[in-house]
Nucleic acid binder design. Structure first.
Lengths: 229, 229
DNA sequence: TCCATTTTGTTCCCACGTTCACAAACTCCT
DNA sequence: AGGAGTTTGTGAACGTGGGAACAAAATGGA
């Protein structure tokens, strides 16, 4: 085994693993809340809904935080994953587009509890500006630059209609935002070095519809699992 | 080339391709709305934000709907993809949990326009029952079975808090729902044959935070793309 | 101390997904 | 008709991810 120090910047964690670390984190928090101090990879894998071999391999990319014959210390492992993801620090976030979805996002408690702080809500519609949503006053979109500079914001959320998404993204990138979470049903192009993740509600339903249709047509059910269970 | 008839049930489309078909569908709709009647794989790939070779390979799983030297007929290809996904038919959907997110989902116009019809909104909270959201009256959760039978619902959406998600999923499965879209931040277990797709807002932000942290630490930027642009 | 038991960390192998590169097939122009 | 130009559909190479299996390392009891 090659023991890697936690400061070894050359270490690369596969993208598929990164996407699962937050799930492990949540499962560990649930275990800790139940008063459980130690767990095996089997326990944690069950709680996270994955295969235990996959879990162990995922954790091995972070380092060697378990004890053979014993398992993992819940609090210790939780801290290590949190540090690796970066949720031990505070992340200021701006949300652009305060429609139905923007409202819901602004009120979502799961952000706050994981270190994401909504520092501003922005909308181009003057009718919305000035209203208070989730305890935050909606400000005009043109205030974006001022807010980003003041709070050193790196992460932006787009919850606008599709037609506005690319413009908003362009403005965000120009001002220095380097990570974007896009809820608008549109493809946004960004330069190298900027991360975009897309969440599209209707696409998820369409994927389910495809599998549902195959089930209804009596297709071979061996592959009926949608691949996301 | 093996020409496959559209009724050949043995044909299997890779999961990764299925997940992109809705994106192509949206891009084609945008092209059609711009008055474009024909496009090349390069054009469509750009509009969809993917590599053109990948697009062609994806489309080849459906059949041979293009013309060499010419490209694809926008309307024709759009219809073929829509039929393949199943959005040419009407899909009744129930939403359980009418909090902030449930509200937003009920009002989301993107569902209706793609063949998904919200036939009922359900909540266990008596204070919410009877209220009208997006033109639909909220009904008690216990009405689930009656509604599912009446409308022949196959797809359920969970927008409850985490603690309720597994119970709701169990009830849905018992009643005969075979596809679930889960917005609750919890792992739900379902039996073989039931599809679950999970959308977790805070997980997406955590993935962005991980990459953001790596950028800030001056890590090798060659892999800085979050993998979802 | 030594052995049986447990559980991690890792290796090996297979399946899936992506991309390159090119033959096949179509249009248009002369 | 025939050749130049264009674009699709696909075979092959490559890279990533998942899972079984096992060696290594810890515990606990005799």
């Amino acid at each position: 085994m090659t023991t890697r120090s936690s400061t070894d910047a050359t270490r690369v964690i596969p993208e598929a693993t990164v996407a699962r670390l937050p799930v492990y984190l949540r499962a560990l928090t649930a275990l800790a809340d139940s008063g459980i101090r130690t767990c095996s990879s089997e326990d944690l894998a069950t709680a996270a809904g994955v295969n235990s071999a996959k879990l162990r391999k995922d954790l091995s990319y972070l380092g060697s935080y378990g004890t053979r014959g014993v398992g993992y210390d819940v609090d210790y492992l939780r801290y290590q994953i949190a540090r690796e993801i970066g949720v031990t620090q505070d992340w200021p976030v701006v949300i652009v587009g305060i429609g139905n979805l923007g409202h819901a996002l602004a009120n979502y408690s799961g952000f706050r509890s994981r270190g994401f702080r909504v520092v501003a809500l922005l909308d181009a519609d003057p009718a919305l500006v000035g209203q208070t949503v989730a305890g935050v006053v909606v400000r005009p979109f043109d205030d974006l630059e001022e807010i980003v500079r003041e709070h050193d914001v790196a992460i932006g959320v787009i919850a606008t209609p599709a037609f506005a998404a690319q413009d908003v993204a362009d403005r965000m990138v120009a001002i220095g935002i380097t990570s974007i979470l896009n809820f608008a049903p549109a493809v946004v192009a960004v330069p190298e070095g900027v991360d975009v993740r897309k969440v599209d509600l209707s696409i998820e339903l369409q994927i389910l519809a495809y599998h549902e249709q195959r089930k209804a047509n009596g297709a071979d059910p061996t592959n009926a699992d949608g691949g996301a269970a």
